[in-house]
Amino acid sequence: MNIFRLAGDMTHLLSIIVLLLKIYATKSCSGISLKTQELYALVFLARYLDLFTDFISVYNTIMKVVFIASSLAIVWCMRLHPLVKRSYDKELDTFRHYFLIGGTFVLALVLNEKFTLQEILWAFSIYLEAVAILPQLVLLQRSGNVDNLTGQYVFFLGAYRAFYILNWIYRYLTEPRFTRWIACVSGIVQTGIYADFFYYYFISWKNNSKLKLPA
């Protein structure tokens, strides 16, 4: 474990806490894409299959449980909670995310470390995570104004993978045979997708103005 990876995991945890706070405090999920939340739940379920087979560390196990439980709780909240589900922007959240699931799964069948179910699902979860934010970014562009907590949620979500890139560089330099090409290339693509959001987020922070994404 290095400082970059710890910072990345904590930033990821923070993004989930900010999202839970927004939903709990405002009893509303307006501006949040249910499709992105469903994709994240799928990412964690596909990636943490080894939760019960490979014990890495207490930290690793606890974080996996927290990520799976929180992503399922958010999906449950947005679909079933009587008060919250009414504020879901159903007509704005129209990204055809099934194409993302199909495309990334086919890619995982072709590009994986080993043609075993666990490795294919791991690669699938890595590719899917890279594109999972797209429905959310599209929804933000459509809904025009972005409330602070939602903006912070997306910002932390993008920042966490940027820390992971620093972690992979650090591990590549310090561990003799560390290569994790699938995660690293996919992580760079994932962080790149946030680039324009980061730009508009920085502008709105600099001008102290409301975050607006061009339609």
Partner: peptide
């Protein structure tokens, strides 16, 4: 280490 397929990262 990370090469024997064990995914030690989240």
């Amino acid at each position: 280490n990370a090469n024997n397929g064990i995914k030690d990262e989240l």
